[in-house]
């Protein structure tokens, strides 16, 4: 599987600078001298052309104040390289462990910035997939939230994050790359049009499809969704009112539900995982105790948030243990 967000470098220089920080880092990262890079911006290059023009003008008119002010601007420009570098040098960053998300939604990465004894203006963070965010970093830590699209399930590396600044004059671009060690867990996207989870209890779970057994209590009706078993359709109501509804049956309290990989036989793998995710969410929503049986992994029935996440994680990692 590819990365969720491929860190696409912008230029040769940035590619070179990226190479040195391939290894993921954990905890607080301080942007020390050897990992901060600086180059003139487009505006910086234009400005140097302007300075050259001013110098030629001063020479041509033999204008001493022209010389003096050209040199003043030149000096400020040169110094602004130091100012820009200083603005980012020594900055502390900590990438928080991101919350797991479902595929096709957006993932959020919280980055905590620390000024380390200096007020820093206009620090910007961006990944190639997210827009850039700007903030000042004062005495307190400051949090920036980057959001990126989570496309495929699995345990993903976070994208390289670029931390940069062009303050104060926009003439120089000082940047550093951060490769966080934190991983982003992306669950399979729950299927939108999944058939309801019909089978409960260990007995029926094996025989996929099942039937509306008499032991089940009638729970209610809901609109027909594509894929609902025909035997659940309330035909009588259809005859009377013309709308298609299916009957729902609630399991008895305490009785556990097993969601089994084999219940989705015949579908492509990803669809199966999506359907299972939907069922897990549905079951958790309704407060049922449920277990998950996957090839090579079985989670005993339980309830609760942690259990749900464990089950979803099992789906996310199915057949896709990220390379270490």
């Amino acid at each position: 599987m590819t990365e969720v967000i491929p860190g696409k470098p912008r230029s040769l220089f940035e590619r070179l600078s990226q190479r040195r920080h391939q290894l993921p880092e954990q905890g607080e990262i301080t942007l020390h001298r050897r990992r901060v890079y600086i180059l003139p911006t487009r505006y910086g290059l234009t400005f140097s052309l302007l300075l050259l023009l001013m110098l030629v003008g001063s020479i041509n008119y033999n204008n001493n104040l022209g010389y003096a002010f050209t040199f003043l601007f030149g000096s400020i420009t040169t110094l602004s390289m130091l100012f820009t570098h200083r603005n980012i040098h020594g900055l502390g960053l900590r990438v928080a462990q991101p919350e797991p998300v479902f595929a096709t939604s957006r993932a959020y990465i919280d980055i905590h910035l620390r000024g380390n004894g200096r007020y820093r203006f206009a620090i910007q963070l961006q990944t190639d997939e997210s827009g850039h965010h700007e903030t000042d970093v004062g005495k307190d830590t400051r949090k920036i939230r980057l959001d990126l699209p989570a496309t495929t399930r699995g345990l993903h590396r976070l994208p390289r994050i670029k931390c940069f600044t062009e303050y104060p004059y926009g003439l120089f671009h000082a940047w550093s790359w951060i490769t966080p060690a934190e991983r982003l867990l992306v669950y399979p996207a729950p299927e939108l049009t999944a058939p309801p989870l019909v089978s409960r209890g260990e007995g029926e779970s094996r025989s996929s499809g099942g039937h509306p057994g008499g032991r089940d209590d009638f729970h209610g009706l809901r609109d027909y969704r594509h894929g609902d078993p025909r035997s659940h359709i309330a035909w009588k109501r259809e005859a009377r009112h013309g709308d298609l509804v299916v009957k729902l049956f609630a399991g008895q309290i305490g009785q556990s539900l097993i969601i089994d990989w084999s219940m989705t036989e015949g579908l492509p793998t990803e669809t199966r995982l999506s359907r299972l995710a939907r069922w897990i969410l549905d079951a958790a929503n309704e407060g049922l105790a449920y277990g998950l049986v996957m090839p090579g992994k079985t989670i005993d029935p339980a309830t609760g948030e942690a259990h749900m996440h464990a089950c979803l994680k099992a789906l996310a990692l199915f057949d896709n243990e990220d390379r270490p």
């Binding site: 203006f121 206009a122 700007e134 903030t135 000042d136 062009e166 303050y167 104060p168 004059y169 926009g170």
Partner: peptide, 9 residues
């Protein structure tokens, strides 16, 4: 004003 321009806040 150049500084102000480069500071979005």
């Amino acid at each position: 004003s150049m500084i102000a321009l480069n500071h979005a806040r």
